[in-house]
Amino acid sequence: MGRHTRAILAGLGLAGLLLAAGPAAEAQADAGPVDADVQMQFLHPQVAPGRQFHFYLLTHLKSGTLSTFRGLVHLPEGMTYVPVVERTCEPTSANKREIACRPDSQSLTVQVADDVPVGTRLTITATADIGDAVDTHPEDNTARQEVLVKPGADWSVKWTGPTTPVQPGSTPVTTRLVVTNHGQEADLPFILTSGPGDYPRQMEYYGKWDKTCGIATEGNGLLCRPTTPVPPGGTITYTFRFKVYPAALGKEQRREARVSSEFPATEPDINDNTTTLVVKVADKAAQPTGKPTSPATGGAKPTSAPTTAPGDHLADTGGAGTGSALTAAGAAAAVGGGLLLTSRRRRRSH
């Protein structure tokens, strides 16, 4: 037997040993009982027909080890899974109602069909997939959640301000933001407004605002949160004032506002949840008006002030005192010259 033949046989023997040890090692990894757990978490198990909602799937092993472990979700008819880029969960059926997810915490987005009747209750089922392993507490391997298909609050928002161009200055611009609930349930809305983004500053919030509003963490705007639910058909009104700066001359100032529900999935129509405030600023700053001259009393005609020739506004340049002195000096020189000329003529006559 040659050297190369012995080397090949030795390699085959080592490979055989590895193949023989493989299944045993895998069986050892899955040996023993396990304790798996699956849960679902919902912000609010209610959704309007045609809308999407989100929930969390939590799948983990309390004890034991498994080479293959995942969470399975079954959606009822009328619901479909919406895949995401992360691909931590993937549909395993053509109708996208069966989903397999990695362990730990995963977020799922589900679409509800438009034709699901209002009042329908749909049940979602989640299962911990442990294969052939034995679970010491199988009662927590399955979780179910019922979702009610029913519209909730339905918001609209409108922000109005001056209808004519405004002037920059100390007088603030007053605007009003009105939020209306057109839906079937009372709710607490969130109102978010945009803030100034221009430099130099052109228009900023002025004075105090409603006590339910505060500075938003994004956008330099305001976040308002009413303290009591707004009933169906009810409205709330916010008054916001702005200071307009000279840098805004000739420019439109825009601020946006958005309203959202405490439970967004229950709102049937979100197309009217945003509004834009438009404040037009005049092209030129207002010129100060002069004080009218009081008419003379006693029937005398008022005397008109002498006009000044162009270029002679010395007072406008800060030289008012110098101009008066120069005028007086010129008058004195003229008078002195006249006296000198008269004196000379008298001497010649003698």
Rank of each mutant, 00 (worst) to 15 (best):
R346M: 15
P306H: 03
A24K: 09
T127M: 03
A128C: 04
G299H: 09
K251N: 12
A328M: 09
W209F: 14
T92V: 15
Y205Q: 10
D272K: 13
A305H: 08
K280M: 02
V281T: 09
F242D: 04
L223T: 06
T297D: 07
T275G: 08
S294F: 09
T266W: 05
L12M: 12
T5Q: 14
D283V: 07
T193R: 07
T303F: 07
P226K: 04
G219D: 01
Y81T: 03
G64R: 08
E86D: 15
L14T: 15
V147Q: 00
Q41G: 11
D37Y: 04
G71H: 05
G161N: 06
F242A: 08
I215T: 11
A153N: 06
R121K: 13
G221I: 01
T275M: 09
G214Y: 03
A186S: 15
R70K: 11
L75V: 00
H60V: 00
A25Q: 13
A332H: 04
D115A: 11
G197N: 12
A265V: 04
L19I: 12
D316R: 10
T293V: 15
V278M: 11
T303G: 12
A7Y: 08
T174Q: 13
G298Y: 10
E185P: 00
P196N: 06
V118H: 01
L249T: 07
R255Y: 10
M1F: 12
V178D: 10
A309H: 06
Q287N: 09
T163G: 12
L341Q: 09
L122R: 07
C224Q: 06
R345I: 14
P232R: 08
E77Q: 10
A15R: 08
T174H: 10
K284P: 02
P232G: 02
G22H: 14
L9M: 07
W155Q: 03
R3V: 11
T322C: 03
V73W: 01
G16N: 02
L188M: 08
R176K: 14
A247M: 06
G337Y: 12
P302E: 12
M40S: 04
P246K: 10
D283N: 15
P165K: 03
E267T: 13
N95V: 01
D114R: 04
T342Y: 11
G219R: 09
T125R: 03
N271L: 15
F263R: 07
R255F: 15
R144M: 05
G2Q: 05
T80C: 00
A48I: 04
A286D: 05
Y56A: 12
D316L: 14
G338V: 14
A128H: 04
R176T: 14
L341R: 10
N141F: 03
A128L: 08
R254D: 03
Q46E: 11
R258H: 11
L61E: 04
A332D: 07
P76M: 02
L341S: 03
G32C: 07
T266F: 05
H60L: 06
P231E: 13
K208Q: 14
I99K: 06
Q253I: 14
D104V: 10
Y56I: 02
P45G: 04
K291I: 13
D37H: 06
E146C: 00
E98S: 02
T92D: 12
N95K: 05
G234D: 10
L19E: 01
I124N: 00
T317F: 09
S170M: 02
